[in-house]
């Protein structure tokens, strides 16, 4: 059964007054990360919009997502994700050397 220390939180770090305006710092960090993903990950945004229930709003959003994907592709901004995905697919396809056919079940 569980012992002592179960109410310790992983986010409890020493509060030694490092950094001012933590809320502003956190908000700017989240904003920059979101912006970065908006410009480098248009593929995922398009896929997400396509998954939404069909309707006029979805159709309008799908048009914008398509345009956004084309624009970011033209600038090469989607390449890092595409390259990462290609490497991952290669890793998935890699196999150990197989023994002769007759030994397999």
């Amino acid at each position: 059964m569980s012992g002592h220390g179960e109410f310790e939180s992983p986010v409890d770090l020493p509060r030694d007054g490092v950094g001012k305006r933590p809320l502003g710092w956190a908000t700017l960090t989240i904003f920059i990360a979101s912006l970065f993903l908006l410009v480098t990950n248009a593929f995922t945004i398009k896929a997400w919009v396509d998954e939404q229930p069909a309707g006029p709003t979805q159709a309008r959003l799908a048009g914008w997502a398509e345009e956004w994907l084309s624009a970011t592709e033209a600038l090469g901004l989607n390449k890092p994700r595409a390259e990462m995905h290609r490497l991952w697919k290669e890793a998935q396809a890699a196999r150990f050397a197989q023994p002769p056919e007759g030994n397999q079940r």
């Binding site: 992983p10 986010v11 770090l13 020493p14 509060r15 933590p22």
Partner: peptide, 12 residues
């Protein structure tokens, strides 16, 4: 909030 809490939250 404090910065340590936020940094740890993002990492988690």
């Amino acid at each position: 909030l404090d910065r340590g809490m936020v940094a740890m939250a993002l990492l988690l």
